[in-house]
């Protein structure tokens, strides 16, 4: 979980991700941020994220991002 928070903090240091229940609803992430996060995840975990999985449900919380990683075979 902390690994994910570290990535989010790197992308948007000004926001309190731990204090948000839904990053998308709270407007924390714009299109540029999502593309950045996707490429950071792909590089860190050596995976290729399917464009179809780039939906709010998979990016709304750190737990959701972990779910996406698990779907891609990452053990976390």
């Amino acid at each position: 979980m902390e690994e994910i928070y570290a990535i989010l903090k790197e992308v948007r240091p000004e926001y309190d991700f731990k204090g948000s229940e839904d990053y998308v609803e709270d407007g924390f992430l714009d299109s540029f941020d999502i593309i950045t996060i996707v490429s950071m995840l792909e590089e860190k975990y050596h995976i290729q994220i399917d464009g179809l999985d780039i939906i709010p449900d998979n990016f709304c919380t750190a737990a959701a991002i972990i779910g996406l990683l698990k779907k891609n075979g990452v053990i976390i």
Binding site: V24, L29, D30, S31, I34, G51, L52, I54, I55, P56
Partner: peptide, 9 residues
């Protein structure tokens, strides 16, 4: 606007 962050939407 938010759909362009999640282009499939």
């Amino acid at each position: 606007v938010k759909y362009f962050a999640f282009p499939v939407m």
